[in-house]
Amino acid sequence: MFLVIFVLLFLTGSVFGNHWTYNDEGEWSNLCQTGKSQSPIALTRSIAILKEFHPFSMHGYGQSTTALLQNNGHSAEVRLQNIEAPTVHGGGLPGTYQLDHLHFHWQSEHTMNNYRFPLELHLVHFEQKHRNLSEAVKHPHGVAVLGVLFDLSLDDDEDFQPLLEIIDNLKETVGEPRHLKDVFSAKSFLPRDKGGFYRYQGSLTTPGCNEGVIWTVFTNTLPISPKQVKIFEAMQTEEKTALTKNYRSLQALNDRTVYLRVSPMRSSATSLELSVMLLGLSVLYSKLC
């Protein structure tokens, strides 16, 4: 009887499907070990090819709405409520993508120029032609993730405060969503300058590490204080242990191409890069005219 119950639980994913940790990456599913397009990766200018993309067209991210926040045992996850889901297209994306949820990693999963940031936000989207995220991950380019990096500031970030109050209250409670007391706007968690970003083809960073995910990691950051980061680090797993590490190790680039769109141009581009960018902009302008 025990064997039958175990087999049923295994087939439904209840034994190993949701039971994984960041300390046992070597035991993650097969694709996580053998895939050639895995995420996250180390992002540096030396590996990137400069490329000019059309600007992103983002709709609905500025809506103020209610939201549910939960500790899912691996991250702090936010889902918007009672609005039409925000969508994004342009920016080199092959379709229109709908926001599914937001979640955080402390410290950052991607590194940039050999620096690991204290926090990384993932805005996970699925292509609208698919019914949902679970269906979209089965298809190439079905999922697009916008990655936002946070750098340390001496002062608290005000936009974070309502979120952190709830996180602090549910840090020991896994899988029980709570309504945010204040309205939530996804736009507050995007860089004001979204023009600069790295782009590459990768995967989910959690089991089963599905590949075919379009990654956009913005080069411009948002602020967060050390005190605010510590609130994330106090979250607990299902086993009631501190979730002090919830980022996957860096993965091999293999033969993938990484693109870089530079912004702001004045402070972050060399003279050669500026010439290339200005040439690209002039060609784009002539086509539009």
Rank of each mutant, 00 (worst) to 15 (best):
Lys138Thr: 15
Leu146Arg: 08
Pro94Tyr: 09
Leu93Pro: 08
Leu3Gln: 11
Gly90Gln: 07
Gly35Asn: 05
Arg116Cys: 08
Thr21Ala: 15
Ile49Glu: 10
Leu260Asp: 00
Leu123Phe: 02
Glu211Val: 09
Gly208Glu: 04
Arg116Val: 10
Val145Met: 10
Leu43Lys: 04
Gln236Leu: 12
His59Met: 07
Leu281Met: 11
Leu260Tyr: 07
Val174Gln: 02
Lys187Leu: 12
Gly26Lys: 09
Leu222Tyr: 00
Ser268Asn: 10
Tyr198Trp: 10
Val213Gly: 05
Ser282Leu: 10
Pro264Cys: 01
Leu119Lys: 00
Phe160Gln: 06
Arg266Ala: 12
Ser46Cys: 04
Leu11Arg: 13
Asp155Tyr: 04
Leu250Asp: 01
Leu164Phe: 00
Lys181Phe: 12
His125Asp: 10
Val262Lys: 05
Leu260Lys: 02
His101Lys: 06
Phe56Asp: 09
Gly90Arg: 05
Val148Ser: 00
Val137Leu: 09
Val183Met: 14
Leu272Val: 03
Arg256Asp: 05
Leu278Gly: 02
Ala234Tyr: 10
Gln228Thr: 00
Leu288Glu: 09
Asn220Arg: 06
Asn114Ile: 01
Glu135Tyr: 10
Thr12Pro: 04
Val15Thr: 12
Asn23Asp: 15
Val137Cys: 11
Leu250Asn: 05
Phe117Cys: 03
Leu163Asn: 00
Leu250Tyr: 02
Leu9Asp: 13
Tyr198Pro: 03
Leu133Cys: 14
Thr241Ala: 15
Gly92Arg: 04
Lys240Gly: 13
Leu272Ala: 05
Leu163Ser: 01
Glu165Ser: 15
Thr34Ser: 06
Thr65Lys: 05
Thr219Asn: 00
Tyr285Ala: 11
Arg45Leu: 03
Leu163Ala: 00
Val78Leu: 06
Ser39Gln: 02
Tyr61Thr: 15
His179Lys: 10
Glu239Arg: 14
Ile5His: 13
Leu31Val: 02
Leu133Trp: 10
Val145Arg: 07
His54Glu: 13
Lys245His: 14
Met1Ile: 15
Asn71Leu: 01
Glu239Ser: 15
Ser286Tyr: 12
Ser37Trp: 08
His59Val: 12
Ala144Arg: 07
Val283Glu: 04
Asn114Lys: 07
Leu278Lys: 07
Asn210Val: 03
Pro264Met: 04
Tyr22Trp: 13
Phe150Val: 01
Thr111Val: 08
Lys187Asn: 11
Pro191Tyr: 05
Gly142Glu: 11
Ala252Phe: 05
Ile214Phe: 09
Gln98Leu: 06
Tyr247Asn: 10
His89Leu: 12
Asp100Arg: 06
